[in-house]
Nucleic acid binder design. Sequence first.
DNA 1: TTTTTCATGTAATCGGTTACATGATTAT
DNA 2: ATAATCATGTAACCGATTACATGAAAAA
Lengths: 189, 189
Amino acid sequence: MTKDNTTVYAILGLLNHQDLTGYDIKKRFDVSLGFFWNASFGQIYPTLKSMEEAGLVCKTEEEPEGRARIVYSITEAGKEALQKWLMTVAEKEYVKYEILLKLFFGSIVPPEQNIKLISEFKNRNMQILNILQKYKEELSKVLHSDSDHLYYYLTVLFGEKIQKAYSDWADEAIKLLEEDEKEFHILSE
Amino acid sequence: MTKDNTTVYAILGLLNHQDLTGYDIKKRFDVSLGFFWNASFGQIYPTLKSMEEAGLVCKTEEEPEGRARIVYSITEAGKEALQKWLMTVAEKEYVKYEILLKLFFGSIVPPEQNIKLISEFKNRNMQILNILQKYKEELSKVLHSDSDHLYYYLTVLFGEKIQKAYSDWADEAIKLLEEDEKEFHILSE
DNA sequence: TTTTTCATGTAATCGGTTACATGATTAT
DNA sequence: ATAATCATGTAACCGATTACATGAAAAA
């Protein structure tokens, strides 16, 4: 079991709150951690298996009259591992922006293409900003009802700031490209 | 040869400008594309090999009296592939923020630890902001001397906006955590 | 003379996605 | 009746990193 697989700690963090099935965990990744972390079923199930082997979690197979499911719980060793991880500095953020790669080489395609690229980027991200702002509003109402809420709020605040920066940039970038296009037209008249 | 490996297009974009060795390409990734894309030697050399097999690039082995090196050039097929890729919409940006993962679970460690986490994040990113702002200044001086410069400028502008958003967030987050800490002290008196 | 930079490559491994297989339960 | 959701898992593959091996040339 690799000690430095961050997804292990993400799962531990979720299980520290409550017992969950692999399917539940996937859902949490999608809806709560989605904008800064994610994981697929093909990663979650094998990881849970190796975490169990390492003694970080234990499983309870529920087989009632209804649907069979495997519920995972965090162990004492798991709690210790999580705590220890939380006390270390965070790894450098990992980002890959295909849009910037395309823009970096943008001079060889028509400026309208690059404007289109940025517009699509903006539209997509404005939708995310909308969702984040709704989350933020809801959270600010219950900020003191639970010690976790402030921390959830901080992550949502981060998302909001970033999405706003995306939007600002997109507007400015499009403006600069449009100005450049105009100059080109004047020169070629 | 996989068609959708984005790193292939990153390399094509660089070679479209000028012939380069694998070593040169690595350097470009590190210094010019570093804050939005990257690649390791272990990825670049095998990729170049498969790109050559696919006819996207061709190599010239230079073996003068000096140091032996393999220089790669883009082919017509490579130029077409690059152009085609540039005309399609960009993939969603891929991000992984370990710091947000840690903060999301932050309620189980002392608030000072989370403040430390955010401070380290801010310091690290302020240095990057500094470098980006120097790039930006240099670029703005030569914005119209080359059709590429505006596009380079746009990517640097993006970096600047994001780094500023990081910094803003860090300040606000630390403030909120410090306020929360104070409230806790009042309650526990 | 010693260190850094230039230069190419491979092997092992990791972290992760996609597609597939299977099937029960619940909502429409 | 049908679609969506719940639920678990595997196999193939991909994109990428790390560590290793090797060695010449240039700069300190």
